[in-house]
Amino acid sequence: MFADPVGTGFGCLIILTGVPVYFIFIAWKRKPKPIQNAFDWMTLTLQKILVVVPSEKSRQL
C-alpha cells in the first residue's frame, strides 16, 4: 500500500464495484418478475451463444 497508493486505490475501487453487482444479481432473492425474466433470457441466450450447455444425446444402454 505504501509503495503504490494509486494502484492500491484503483484495486480497491475495482473490488468495491463488485458489491452492487453481487447484491443485484446474487443476494436479491425477491426480484420483480420482469427483471427475473430478463435475467433468465440473458442466461439462456449466453448459454446458447457460448455453447456452455452440452447437447442432449440419447444414451445407448
Rank of each mutant, 00 (worst) to 15 (best):
Q60G: 01
R30K: 13
Y22G: 12
P20R: 12
R30E: 01
V53K: 14
Q60F: 01
K48C: 00
F39N: 04
K48L: 06
V21P: 04
P32S: 06
L16I: 10
I15Y: 14
L16V: 07
Q60S: 00
K33H: 03
W28C: 11
W28K: 14
P54A: 09
V53D: 00
R30Y: 01
L61Y: 12
P20V: 03
I24C: 04
K31I: 06
G18R: 04
D40S: 11
V21G: 11
V6C: 00
W41C: 05
P5V: 05
D40I: 13
Q47A: 01
G7E: 05
E56H: 04
S55E: 08
L44G: 06
P54D: 07
L13A: 15
W41Y: 09
S58A: 05
T8R: 13
W41Q: 10
L61I: 07
A38C: 15
N37F: 05
L44R: 06
T45C: 10
G11W: 10
P34T: 09
L50R: 13
V51G: 05
T17G: 10
D40P: 07
V19M: 11
V52L: 03
Q60I: 02
I15H: 14
M1W: 01
F2I: 02
Q60P: 00
M42C: 13
N37E: 14
F10E: 05
R59A: 01
A27S: 14
P20E: 02
K31A: 03
W41K: 12
L16G: 10
S55P: 04
Q60C: 02
G18P: 03
R59K: 12
R30H: 07
V52R: 11
K29H: 06
P5M: 04
P20C: 15
V52G: 13
T45R: 13
I26G: 02
T45M: 06
A3F: 08
Q60T: 02
V19A: 11
I14Q: 00
P20L: 09
I24F: 09
Q47N: 04
D40L: 15
Q47P: 01
V19P: 04
P5G: 09
D40C: 01
I14R: 00
V52Q: 10
F23A: 03
I35G: 01
P54M: 11
E56V: 01
F25D: 13
I15S: 13
L13G: 12
P34G: 05
A27F: 01
P54G: 08
P54Q: 07
V19G: 05
L61C: 00
G18M: 12
P32V: 03
K48F: 01
A38I: 14
T43L: 13
D4G: 00
